[in-house]
Amino acid sequence: MTGAAWMLPALHFVAMLLLVTSLALIVSPQLFACIRFYALHSFLLALITTGTALYHRVPHVLIAAVLTLVLKTIVIPQIFYRMIRRLGIRRDVETYLNIPLSLIFSTLLVFISFYGVGNLRAIKPPLSQEFVSIAVATLFLGMFMMTTRKKALTQVLGLLLIENGLFLLGVTTTFGMPLLVEIGIFFDVLVGAIIMGVFVFKIRGAFEGLDMDQLTMLKG
């Protein structure tokens, strides 16, 4: 019950592109570029999801693919664009680590996830272990992004990257969660992005900036 033979290598290729996009998202120095890379990341994710649905003939996964396309490639990036315009924040990304160092760390994280998942004999997903490795790598890269960025907005992007990684894992190992759950997760992601957006505004208003350096009043 599987699809055409050419689809599997194509899926692998798209998955590799996805990994490259995650890395590009991590190292890109501009906020707008970051958001574009996130949109691209989500678009590739939607492609993989569609591919999986067609290759394994699991039609309900297509709905998740459409939701990904609409919500994560269009709606959420649009929310971000508007927010940046309204806030008028500086467009460049400030990090605690410089770009070459970030790239070295990210590569290390990718290596660790491929090595770690390769050793997990228990997981034999229907597609290939490579997808699990890439999903875990995306998860790690999202966490890395959250810990090394100074701006509230880029932290939210890191969070969304983590979510994309989890979605990829779900789709490629189990053909996605049951539809009800999948829709609930999408709802949470959307509401979460909006609420975090509101808080980004509040931080901007109260702290005269979005640097996390200033959020250090509460200790002990």
Partner: peptide
Amino acid sequence: DKKSSIEAAWKYLILCTVGIA
């Protein structure tokens, strides 16, 4: 909407969302 409350709420949102992920 005090500074310290916003900081606490932001940390709460981010840390718990990552945890839940």
